[in-house]
Design a protein around this nucleic acid. Structure first.
Lengths: 213, 213
DNA sequence: CTTTTGAAGTTAGTGTCTCTAACATATGTT
DNA sequence: AACATATGTTAGAGACACTAACTTCAAAAG
């Protein structure tokens, strides 16, 4: 009775001394745990249990708990980025629809993975000290800037585009947090999310845009 | 040599068995620690050391660590609220200046107390289950709604005012988080904060407002 | 004025956690 | 075949959250 249960990614008693894929399985176990219990209640020990290794094993792959959590955060940022890029393709270049789509994906990600989203932002302030995280975040923001510029028919991003991209980002970021924090009751925000996104996109980039197409 | 050092709020070796003011001193010690180390690296033990009591003492006043942190978060929300109300009085009723002032205070609070600000929002999602926190947050948001309504000469808040208040809140909230997360480099946000606030206030409430005064 | 009660401290301890040190096992290189 | 390295293990140190049982002291009750 060697390999009856083929449950992928988690636990499965192994017959070999070495695990083979521990690093990524730890990240996955951590991701799940962060969603289940919240980023603050996560423990490395439990991730070890789920990955089926001893509690000392992670430290062959990660310096400490925070490095493991950063890996999860980084993977989250990349997931969010990919989702945004994927959604872009459904809309015509240079249209408000693209802006709205990016915002929609941003918030959808926060709602579907609130634990990881909190990890990506809310938790510790020292994310700024780690280049991989900063660069991944930057590259996503660059996409927003370029989309804004495209709305005005530009291929080069000008300061006013950056300004507007930042307004959009701030708004969508805040909306994401308030949503997962449960502050968004019907009483406070009567409209549908989609309508709000369109409204904001119009207020920020729609005013002076060329809407010929 | 009984009471030479009159250092208020922290530590001072006491001669009586009972402390007298432990609850509020624990909250204060926690607040300081949360700022110093971040909300995730805070420990009750260290707060005890600073307050000069045993590690078991807090549990006569708080059910657990989270209840202590919630008390700090609540105090923060009340501080933030008071600062906003105080700043309001410097501006004429029914003007954009009032809206801008509230946003300015919101962000100023986040920047000056990022640890507590994170505690108030980013950390755990179960804040919504605690009435005191929800009510304090609600009452602050009500002020924003009323200020928006006043901008249109209304005393009663209408749905469109709530909508706009929510847009403002989302934006300022997101801007606060991005700022304390260090995402706000000059490259991304070339303008001054004050200019951005005015810009947003105009975009959200300034468009169709009565600007007779 | 004494007694009692209860709030708010204490010490001592349990279980969990993070992380390290020393050792074990497998894999690939020479 | 011998060795070096990566990646596991066990054992344990030190910090922490929290509990149980005991102590102190002030204030209410008799």
């Amino acid at each position: 009775m060697n390999r009856i249960m083929e449950n992928p990614a988690i636990a499965e008693k192994r017959d070999s001394y070495h695990h083979g894929d521990l690093r990524s399985q730890l990240i996955e176990a951590t991701r799940v745990l962060v969603e289940e219990k919240g980023p603050d209640r996560f423990s490395v020990s439990e991730a070890c249990r789920r990955a089926g290794v001893s509690t000392a094993a992670p430290y062959k792959h990660f310096k400490d708990k925070e490095e493991l959590l950063r890996a999860v955060a980084l993977a989250g940022m990349e997931r969010q980025r990919e989702q945004m890029l994927a959604e872009l393709s459904f809309n015509e270049p240079g249209t408000l629809g693209r802006i709205v789509a990016m915002g929609r994906v941003y918030i959808r990600f926060a709602v579907s993975e609130p634990g990881v989203f909190r990890l990506m932002f809310g938790l510790s302030e020292d994310h700024a000290e780690h280049d991989e995280l900063v660069e991944t975040g930057d590259s996503t923001f660059c996409v927003v800037q370029q989309e804004v510029a495209k709305c005005y028919g530009r291929d080069v991003v000008e300061p006013q585009d950056m300004h507007k991209a930042f307004l959009l980002w701030s708004f969508v970021h805040g909306l994401s947090f308030l949503t997962i924090d449960g502050k968004l009751t019907d009483r406070k925000m009567p409209s549908e999310l989609e309508d709000v996104l369109v409204d904001v996109a119009r207020r920020v980039v729609g005013q002076d845009m060329d809407v010929s197409t």
